[in-house]
Structures are given as C-alpha cells and as structure tokens.
Simulated scan of single mutants.
Amino acid sequence: MAEITRDEVAHLASLARIALTEQELEHLTPQLGQILHAVEAVNEVATPDVPATSHPIPLTNVFRPDVVGETLTPDEALADAPDRSGNSFRVPSILGEG
C-alpha cells in the first residue's frame, strides 16, 4: 500500500470535521502511515482458515446466581458505627460541604 499523504490526512480530517493546524498535519501524517502499516501486517496474517476471535482463550460467566439471602437489620448494620443518624452512618463532611 502506498504511503498516506499530508493531503489525504487533511481530507480525512475535513470529512471528520476536525480542524488541524499545519503542525498537526505534519505530525499526524507519519503516525497514520505507521497505523496503516500495522493494519497491513495483521491482514497478512489473517487468513480465511483462522477464525475471528475477541479473546485468545474462551471466557465463561463467573458470576454466582442472584439469590436473596438473609440481610442485616439497620440496627445490626449500625451496631458498631462510631456515629449514626437514624438508619444511616454519620461521617465527617468533606470539601467544606455541610
């Protein structure tokens, strides 16, 4: 594949509605060229007999079933709280909030 040119980068930026300065165009042109070369390398390896995959190893769901169990009452949960307000923990204010 041919190298990407500064004009092509400017055209792509225009299509994406991105305003680039001359310095940004000069900086991004070689970077986009490197990205294109990397994509070419992946395309060389990807063949029809290699299935597409999102992960190198199979993943399975590791979550437990959502089963309702016994819970603490508010008094049990707040039994060792240093300070409380009704059924809530009372904590010091932060960032000057009241």
Rank of each mutant, 00 (worst) to 15 (best):
E22D: 13
L15I: 07
N43Q: 12
M1A: 11
R64W: 03
P58K: 12
S54Q: 12
S88T: 10
V42I: 11
L36K: 10
P51L: 04
F63D: 09
E97N: 11
S54M: 10
V45R: 15
T5S: 15
E22G: 06
L15P: 00
D83Y: 08
D7G: 01
S54K: 13
I35A: 10
R64T: 08
E22F: 01
V68Q: 08
V67R: 14
L72C: 07
F89A: 11
T5C: 04
F89T: 12
A79W: 05
A10F: 01
F63N: 13
P48R: 08
I35R: 12
I18M: 12
P48S: 07
G98Y: 08
T47P: 02
G86I: 04
L95D: 15
L25P: 09
T21V: 05
T47D: 05
A10G: 02
A41Y: 08
D66C: 05
G96F: 07
L12W: 09
A81I: 07
D75K: 13
D80T: 14
L72W: 06
T5H: 04
A79C: 05
R90C: 03
E8C: 02
P92R: 14
A10Q: 11
V68C: 00
D7W: 00
L36M: 09
G69V: 08
D83F: 11
R64K: 14
R90E: 09
P74D: 04
R17P: 00
E70S: 09
I4A: 05
I57A: 11
M1W: 06
A41N: 10
G33F: 01
D7A: 15
D80I: 05
G33C: 01
Q34C: 00
A2Q: 14
A81L: 06
L12V: 08
A77N: 04
P51G: 00
E3D: 13
L36P: 00
H55V: 03
E44T: 08
A41M: 10
F89E: 03
V67H: 04
T73Y: 06
N43P: 00
E76W: 04
D49P: 02
V62Y: 00
